[in-house]
């Protein structure tokens, strides 16, 4: 019983991290139809900035984390303008190639500036203490990750379901051309959505640094993991990404606990079987 609860708690925390990082990828793929392999790079940039602000400049976590997220958004905006905007209309292959190229440049830049070693992010004391849940000790950090994940999904739901921006975004996802024909400024929606996705990835990268350690090769190492969330959730579906991320978090954690030697193989086996049966994912439309 304890084992099951442990798997549930760790798996859900892990899933929340995956959700935060991957949801932006899912929405931009559903919206712009761009195969973006560089998305993990924004989580890396967020984590690396948080490390640099904390370790080199001595800022506290509560200041460094928001600044790092803002910094990531500031980097993502011009990238969307200059680079991504040009590849929206390209073929799949060109998009893959361009975003791989961008990923390589991100890795090389982080390495050039901060080196190839691990980039730890120091957590504040408030997040390091433990919370007693009765059946197990839980670090406040894990609890915070779960709470932040819930806030993010609630916030995204509110944003998409209750605001004018959300209505326009959903219209653009459903049919880009019609949306722009009836006067929705899809170009600014693209940019805002892209920036939002990059910011969430940075948040996930910073909060998840304990589970997915930050170093220069981060975007390549976890690329498949993030892509799996999007593929299983279904492109463009926020709820799909959420369910998929939690399921993946729990299944991967369970296979680590139960069959540690074969964890990767079991996990990928599940993923391939699932996608062979449902190639469009849980809630995919396109």
């Amino acid at each position: 019983m304890d084992l099951l609860l442990n798997i549930a708690v760790d798996g859900i925390a892990y899933g929340m991290i995956l959700f935060m990082i991957a949801v932006g990828l899912s929405v931009t793929m559903g919206l712009m139809r761009v195969v973006n392999l560089a998305h993990g790079g924004f989580a890396l940039i967020g984590g690396a900035l948080a490390h640099w602000l904390g370790a080199e400049l001595g800022l506290g976590f509560w200041l460094a984390a928001p600044l790092a997220i803002a910094g990531t958004v500031l980097i993502a905006l011009p990238l969307e303008r200059v680079l991504y905007r040009r590849i929206y209309g390209f073929g799949e292959l060109q998009q893959v190639l361009a975003t791989i190229g961008l990923t390589f440049l991100m890795i090389a830049s982080v390495n050039y500036l901060l080196g190839s070693t691990l980039l730890p992010i120091e957590l504040p004391p408030a997040l390091r203490q433990t919370v007693d849940l009765g059946f197990r000790q839980l670090t406040a950090h894990r609890a915070a990750v779960i709470v932040v994940g819930l806030v993010v999904i609630a916030g995204l739901w509110g944003l998409l379901d209750r605001t004018r921006f959300g209505i326009r975004l959903r219209a653009a996802v459903d049919n880009r051309d019609t949306a722009s024909a009836i006067g929705i400024n899809t170009s600014s929606i693209y940019m805002l959505t892209f920036a939002l996705g990059a910011g969430l990835a940075a948040l996930g990268g910073i909060l998840g640094a304990e589970l997915l350690p930050i170093d220069a090769y981060y975007p390549l190492r976890y690329m498949v993991l993030f892509l799996i969330v999007v593929a299983i959730g279904g492109m463009g579906s926020i709820l799909g990404s959420f369910v998929a991320a939690l399921a993946i978090g729990v299944i991967e954690t369970a296979s680590r606990y139960l069959v540690p030697d074969l964890a990767t193989i079991v996990f990928f086996g599940f993923v391939i079987l699932f996608l062979a049966v449902r190639p469009r994912g849980l809630m995919g439309s396109a």
């Binding site: 195969v35 690329m223 498949v224 990767t264 993923v271 391939i272 190639p279």
Partner: peptide
């Protein structure tokens, strides 16, 4: 059986397995 992004991701996954 798959296309696009899913296909690309799965081909990477097979190599990782």
């Amino acid at each position: 059986r798959t296309h696009g992004l899913t296909l690309i991701m799965l081909t990477i996954a097979v190599a990782q397995i």
